[in-house]
Design a protein around this nucleic acid. Structure first.
Lengths: 127, 127
DNA sequence: GAAAGTAGTTTCCTTTGAGAAACTAAGTTG
DNA sequence: CAACTTAGTTTCTCAAAGGAAACTACTTTC
C-alpha cells in the first residue's frame, strides 16, 4: 500500500505540528480578526475608524476582537493624550509576521474560488 | 502619517483578498479538519481507522467533517467492494495543495509558542 | 445644562458548534 | 437468530459565538 506523504515532504501529524497549526487557527479565528488585521495593514486606526471601516461589526465584537489580538501581541493599543482621549490601534511588527500565512491563504482561496466555479459550470447534468 | 504596508508588500484588504482568506479559513475551520487532514497525509484510512486515530472524535463529527472535506475536494471517499463494505478516505492531489498553508501555520504556531513562553518567563512582576 | 463625540461595557437574546448515546442498515460468523 | 463489524444517522442537550440595543464615563461645544 502506497503512502501519501504530501508530495515530497514529511507528513504532518507529528503532534507538535498539528498543535502549532491549531494554535495559529485559534488566534486567527473569530468572525472579524482577519478583516481587522487587513484593515490595520493599511495604517493605524482609532476605534471609531475601525467601526466605520469594518462593515457590520458592533462595538462589543470590535472591542473583544481587538483585545484578543492585543493579548497575542499582533496589534498595539495606544491611548493618545488628546481631548477627548482617542485610542490608536496598530499592527505590530510581530503581527506582520503573519503575512506569509495570509498571502498563502489568499492565494489558495482565490484559486479555490476559480476551481469551484469551474466545477459547477463544467458539470452538465452528470450528477 | 506613515502607512503600514506589511513590510514591502501591498496591504491586504483588497476585498477579494480578504474574501479569499475567509474562504480558506472556513474550509479549514471545524474542530477536527486539520487533524483529519494530517492523519490522511500519512496514508489512506477507513472510517474506523480514523475513529481510532483521531483521539476523542465521535462518529457524528467524523462523518460531518469528512463530508465537508469531500465537498471541497480535499479528500476522496471510495466504497470498497469488500464484505462488509469498507470506505476508504484519502487526501486528494487538490488536498495536498494546502501543504504550503499548513506548513506556514505550523511554523508560525511553533514560533508563537516559544514567544509566549519567553514572554511569561521574562515578565518579572512588572505588571 | 443639553447634545454630541470618544471608547468602550453590559444585558439579553439567537444562532451555531459540538458531544453523548441511541439507533439504522447491511453483511458475517457461529 | 443472536452477536459482532462497518459506516454511518438521529435525537437530545449543552456551550460557545455572535448581534442589537441600552448604558457608562469622560469631554467639548452650543
Amino acid at each position: 500500500m502506497k503512502k501519501k506523504v504530501f508530495i515530497d515532504q514529511k507528513p504532518l501529524q507529528c503532534p507538535s505540528q498539528l498543535r502549532a497549526i491549531h494554535d495559529t487557527m485559534d488566534i486567527l479565528s473569530g468572525k472579524w480578526k482577519i478583516t481587522i488585521i487587513g484593515c490595520l495593514s493599511f495604517g493605524d486606526k482609532r476605534f471609531m475608524d475601525l467601526m466605520r471601516e469594518v462593515k457590520g461589526i458592533g462595538s462589543k465584537m470590535l472591542s473583544k476582537e481587538l483585545q484578543e489580538l492585543e493579548i497575542n501581541g499582533l496589534i498595539s493599543r495606544t491611548v493618545q493624550p488628546t481631548k477627548p482621549v482617542t485610542v490608536e490601534y496598530a499592527l505590530t511588527t510581530y503581527g506582520e509576521t503573519l503575512r506569509p500565512i495570509l498571502w498563502e491563504m489568499a492565494d489558495w482561496g482565490q484559486h479555490h474560488r476559480i476551481k469551484v466555479k469551474a466545477t459547477f459550470s463544467g458539470e452538465v447534468g452528470s450528477g
